[in-house]
Design a protein around this nucleic acid. Structure first.
Length: 491
RNA sequence: GGCGCUAUGGUCAAGAGGCUAAGACGUCGCCCUCUCAAGGCGAAAUCACGGGUUCGAUUCCCGUUAGCGCUACCA
């Protein structure tokens, strides 16, 4: 297909998969799906020092977890492979030789020290520090001399002077750069590995990428890449530079802003649908006022011309709100599974429970479903079901038990509860109502003492759901203990 | 320093020459309610600044300021 849209996501496997990378991937994926095109996954591992297979695996796992599949690339193959840059070295080499032969690139034998000295000199003169093309015209003798010294050359691209470079960008419009502001840059490092700006062009061209959607930090590099496209006679793709995600203090997201990797959010119990939904809304807005979108809906609604130009601050509150929305929609079992690892971690369950015990656990966990933002919050929310030892939250709570109507209420409760045929929500509720009626007390005077005696706390889940889960014996003993602690006599 | 991008409430944002400047998160208040959460209703809160262009600028142009990015043998 001649006009097929082909986009790529090309991460560097140099660490935990960042939430910003996930957003770039998402925009590419949405655009590809929307246009009925293809998504290619390529691994840019030319930084030998920092790249690792481990983070490559991490990236692939995260993409899958987020529901983004790719049509071509790593693991799935395709006609334009290999899809790992370190496996494409011979391809780059061919083009480098061509550039060298045509005089569009040259060997540079400068050492780091020489480069640094040049930079310092330029700065001292108040000029822009950039490579001045010292090795552009080396004589054969000089080259021999350098070789004899054992110097390993880099290959630099010869940047043409006085050229206006136009970058056509889907989100920023046309951006013009002046080639005079760009020094001859390295395209092949002294170890023979191509640099990012070089490899990316060859790969995108050879993989027939039609739209390059990536983070804004690459915009300033794009003119360099355009120069290479031209030098190699490749057709340029359409670019789309999406804004960066910033932390709360408006600086680039980093560790001190809390969780920044996709995996951290997964581990905290965020749902992939929620992350996708949230990320999509960061820098893109639908036509409608809708806030909650499934992936299918996003595909349907997505459009690159509704992508915002300005950077977006990562708002954890909104993520929490969206995640809570999706959490509430889970089934009882799904929610239990989501909470399970966190319950195990806290030692509340072993993961081996079955039978009545399992059902009880599911019921307990289910009490947290409506008001928790992410799964890691579940254990704290249900901790009271796992220990009968508790302290009073504060003196206010303690004072609730000192009210003179308390003994009467508790006596009636202890009288009625054991007589119930089944101890469930409705029957417990009915019991409370009956006590209210007999004592002519307001609801608060009935519920609050029971709540505090039962939990030590003035806040918490509904009593009618709590009592059945605790069971008769624990309910009675917890209340007795609390009354003893504050010295209230029942009879 | 140079180049580039950006600038609507605390945050995400709609808007695309004339509007009471949407909506959402968050905040606050009220309702519901034993409490919390959820839910319902409501409120406060925004066009960075200065010049133009125009009958009229949040919207177009220029400048200033601020933030960010690039200026690497990192991507």
């Amino acid at each position: 297909m001649a006009n097929e849209v082909r986009v790529r996501f090309a991460p560097s496997p140099t660490g935990p998969f960042h939430i910003g990378g996930a957003r770039s991937a998402l925009f590419n994926w949405l655009f590809a799906r929307k246009m009925g095109g293809k998504m290619i996954l390529r691994i840019e591992d030319t930084d030998l020092e920092r790249s690792s297979r481990e983070s490559e695996e991490n990236i692939k796992a995260a993409l899958k977890w987020l529901g983004m599949n790719w049509d071509e690339g790593i693991d799935v193959g395709g006609e334009n492979g290999p899809y790992r840059q370190t496996e494409r070295l011979d391809i780059y080499k061919k083009y480098t030789e061509k550039l060298l032969a045509e005089g569009k690139a040259y060997y540079c034998y400068c050492t780091d020290e020489e480069l640094e000295a040049e930079r310092q000199a330029l700065v001292a003169e108040g000029k822009m520090p950039r490579y001045m093309g010292k090795c552009r015209h080396l004589t054969p003798e000089q080259v021999e001399q350098y070789k004899a010294e054992g110097r390993k050359p880099t290959v630099r691209f010869k940047v043409p002077a006085d050229k206006q470079i136009l970058v056509r960008d889907m989100v920023r419009g046309d951006v013009v750069f002046d080639s005079n502001g760009i020094g001859d840059f390295v395209i092949v490092k002294s170890d023979g590995i191509p640099t990012y700006n070089y490899a990316v062009v060859i790969d995108d061209a050879l993989m027939h990428i039609t739209h390059v959607i990536r983070a804004e930090e690459h915009l300033s590099n794009t003119p360099r890449q355009c120069l290479i496209y031209d030098a190699l006679g490749f057709e340029k793709p359409t670019f789309g530079h999406i804004s960066l995600i910033l932390g709360k203090d408006h600086t680039k997201m980093s560790k001190r802003h809390g969780a920044t990797s996709v995996d951290q959010y997964r581990q905290l119990g965020y749902l992939p649908e929620a992350i996708d939904n949230f990320l999509a809304l960061l820098g893109w807005a639908p036509n409608s006022e809708q806030e909650i979108f499934s992936m299918d809906e996003l595909v349907k609604e997505f459009s690159m011309d509704h992508v915002a130009k300005n950077p977006a601050v990562f708002d954890i509150d909104k993520l929490n709100w969206i995640n809570q929305h999706y959490m509430r929609k889970l089934s009882r079992d799904e929610f239990y599974e989501a909470a399970k690892p966190h319950m195990v971690k806290k030692g509340f369950i072993t993961g081996e429970e079955f039978g009545d015990k399992l059902e009880w656990l599911k019921d307990v966990v289910a009490t947290a479903q409506q008001h928790v933002s992410y799964a890691a919050q579940v254990p704290d929310d249900v901790a009271m079901y796992f220990t009968d030892n508790f302290d009073f939250e504060n003196d206010d709570a303690k004072n609730v038990l000192l009210e003179e109507t308390v003994p009467q209420v508790i006596r009636l409760l202890f009288d009625k509860l054991p007589k119930l045929e089944v101890l469930d929500g409705p029957s417990v509720k009915a019991t409370f109502k009956a006590i209210q009626k007999e004592t002519k007390l307001g609801g608060k005077n009935v519920f609050m003492p029971i709540r505090v005696a039962l939990t030590g706390n003035q806040h918490g889940p509904e009593l009618a759901e709590m009592v059945p889960l605790l069971g008769l014996a624990r309910t009675v003993s917890r209340i007795k203990n609390s009354l003893d602690k504050v010295g209230v006599q029942l009879y």
